[in-house]
Design a protein around this nucleic acid. Structure first.
Length: 624
RNA sequence: GGGGCUGUAGCUCAGCCGGAUAGAGCGACGGUUUCCUAAACCGUAGGUCGUGGGUUCGAGUCCCGCCAGCCCCGCCA
């Protein structure tokens, strides 16, 4: 109900200004107009919204907060636009103004969303030009959809996520970036942003020297044939190469020469490099397909030709300093510099990251023309990104209004609170982890079926186990605040109760059951004109109504804060509120006059839950 | 040594721009099924928000100090 909130905010501000015209004018003159501080109510008994603004005004206005509040309420009562929306406001506590929307306003808001594919969430609009933001209403970002503005094409948002390394297997370390990045991209896309999902794979660098050298020795025939060979277990291949590199000086020397050949564009080296990349790509794609994740590969090698320009730019900007033979940018004379060219003349990862920023902000055709760059990597890289971002700023590559955001996340830990490992101490392969989640979900399901004496097709069992298992892994990751480390526990994430994927999926299954059994009464859409005015009476109906109407707020919040756990928490609450409703309020067996409204409410709940899970990247079910 | 993140119930975690009496889930204990999937619902117990100051009408939230844990810190990504 962002638009209602915005409307009320203007009305309150108007009331405030009518009550104290001089103070309001003075406040405006300072650029800080009187703020009613309207926000969603902190408790249900306070109504829908609360205005806290009277309290801080007590001192400047030399009146008691309650007197200020009652003056505002008086003006509001005289505003027909306000009384059409709200019941008479109440003044509570030290001077809070509590607002409750009229039941028919809430019901109409619900009706408007039934059958609406966007479920009340507006499309994003172009941000205002910097400096042109001052309008009545304070510091709030304008709510899109509030006014009928001609849509301005939005600049792309880049989400840089997943980013495994070629010739290595995806492991738990890639899990969070992949899942969180995909979720953020989905939310941004839903809001209407053109999103570039970029997989910044590690496909360039010194490790290829040893890999190619090893490949040339182990499988020279691969370089002769046109088609890529199957290297089998890439991980063990990598290990072999690494081991030889660490123990065999001759191999080491050969590897170093190989790096030079590769960077010099030697055809045979390039062929070997391509083979390794193709092989890895196929492995990665299996995981992405399984997780239903779309990401476009644009590895480090893409920026290779762009690296010299980075150094040139920095030099031209007067930022480069040579130190111990390396080209450096000193952000702070007392701290280690950002090295953009090593003493041996080679570039390193900072250079690549800088080249990426430069390219991504630059207008097409020599760049992506992006407005917002989002990097989803572990928190350990925070200082690296802070430094690189600062260099990009100083170099002038960030356009006005351009945003550079590192989206850090914590470690995946085991039960012991340490970095997750297998029993033998190896890193856990992502594939194994997903397999186990699905297997456990399947075992749970089979046990349940046996217990309940249910017979189900094998295909059904596989579908449910997959959706539950993979959904549980994703949800467990997304539902905690990403900045903290999180404990990976199968039993917890697959638990049938609590803040888990299965709990949410089950709520949707209940709703799907209602739709199946009451399908002929399930309203398709309010827009077809078949929906009578909705009426609600039960407290649990109203709780569901109110929660559903805050969907737009949580989506916009995730878009801005890039915190998927906010959406998870909201969906969990929705499931809880629905389950309480379902437990106590009959739907199909309701009297006819109540049934239509309840079915409409269920329809909206189901659509919202389905959309929410879809934005998390979680497959939904109609039976389980 | 410098920097970052974290510290909230037994456990795992929320807590939005500083707002009213601190919120879930799990676990524990107790209750609910003639009724749309009980994978559910209802209730009880459980807190010095690491710690000491400060800012203010009001601090888990902002500022400073301290303690503890984790992470990063010149040619790896």
């Amino acid at each position: 109900m962002l638009s209602v909130l915005q409307t009320l905010r203007h009305q309150l501000q108007g009331a405030l200004e009518r009550a104290w015209p001089e103070a309001a004018a003075a406040a405006r003159a300072t650029g800080q107009p009187l703020d009613p501080q309207l926000e969603p109510a902190s408790r249900p008994e306070f109504g829908d919204f609360q205005a806290n603004g009277a309290l801080p005004l007590a001192k400047p206005l030399r009146q008691s907060p309650r007197a200020i509040a009652s003056a505002v309420v008086e003006r509001l009562a005289a505003d027909p636009a306000f009384t059409a929306l709200c019941l008479p406001p109440e003044i509570a506590g030290p001077g809070f103004i509590n607002l409750t929307l009229r039941p028919e306003v809430l019901a109409a808001e619900v009706a408007r969303r039934v059958g609406d594919p966007r479920l009340g969430v507006p499309l994003a609009t172009a941000p205002p030009v910097a400096g042109a933001q001052a309008f009545a209403g304070g510091s709030d970002a304008p709510v899109p959809g509030d006014a009928a503005v001609a849509p301005i094409p939005l600049d792309p948002v880049i989400v840089d996520f997943s980013s495994p390394n070629i010739a290595k297997e995806m492991h738990v370390g890639h899990l969070r970036s992949t899942i969180i990045g995909d979720c953020l991209a989905r939310v941004l896309e839903f809001r209407g942003h053109p999103v570039l999902r970029l997989n910044h794979v590690g496909d360039w660098g010194t490790q290829f020297g040893m890999l190619i050298t090893h490949l040339k020795e182990v499988a020279p025939e691969a370089l002769e044939r046109a088609d890529a060979i199957d290297l089998g277990d890439l991980v063990s291949f990598y290990r072999q190469a690494k081991q030889r590199f660490d123990t065999d000086p001759a191999f080491q020397a050969a590897s170093r020469e190989e790096v030079v050949r590769l960077q010099g564009g030697d055809p045979l080296s390039l062929k070997a490099w391509t083979l390794l990349c193709d092989q890895s790509r196929r492995e990665f794609q299996r995981i992405y397909d399984r997780l239903d994740i779309v990401v476009q590969e644009r590895g480090e090698s893409f920026y290779n030709p762009l690296l010299p320009a980075v150094v040139d730019d920095l030099r031209a900007a007067g930022l480069l300093v040579e130190d111990a033979g390396a080209d450096c940018v000193f952000l702070d004379p007392d701290k280690p510099p950002v090295i953009v060219r090593k003493s041996d003349g080679g570039f390193n990862y900072a250079t690549t990251d800088l080249a990426a920023i430069r390219w991504r902000f630059a207008p097409p055709p020599k760049g992506d023309g992006a407005r917002r760059l989002i990097y989803v990597t572990d928190a350990g890289q925070a200082s690296h990104f802070a430094a690189v971002f600062a260099v990009a700023q100083r170099a002038g590559w960030v356009p006005p209004g351009g945003r550079l955001e590192h989206v850090p996340f914590g470690l995946v830990q085991g039960d012991d609170g340490k970095k997750l490992k297998t029993r033998s101490g190896d890193t856990v392969r992502l594939k194994d982890l997903l397999d186990e989640a699905v297997q456990r979900a399947e075992a749970d399901l089979r046990a349940r079926l046996a217990e309940e004496g249910r017979q189900e097709e094998e295909a059904f069992i596989q579908e449910v186990a997959t959706a539950v298992g993979l959904g549980a892994v994703k949800y467990a990751d997304l539902s905690t605040n990403r900045i903290t480390n999180y404990q990976f526990r199968f039993d917890r994430m697959l638990a049938l109760q609590g803040n888990t994927a299965p709990y949410l999926l089950y709520a949707l299954v209940r709703l799907a059951g209602l739709a199946r059994k009451g399908g002929e009464h399930f309203p398709a859409s309010a827009r077809e004109g078949s929906l009578p005015p909705l009426q609600f009476s039960e407290p649990r109906e109203w709780a569901l109504v109110r929660h559903l109407l805050s969907f737009d707020a949580v989506i916009v919040e995730v878009e801005e804060e890039l915190l998927p756990n906010r959406l998870c928490g909201w969906l969990f609450e929705l499931s809880q509120v629905f389950n309480r409703f379902y437990d106590q309020v009959p739907v199909l067996k309701a009297p006819p006059e109540a049934r239509v409204s309840r079915l409409a409410l269920c329809r909206l709940t189901a659509d919202t839950l389905r959309l929410g899970l879809q934005l998390l990247g979680i497959q939904t079910l109609s039976r389980m």
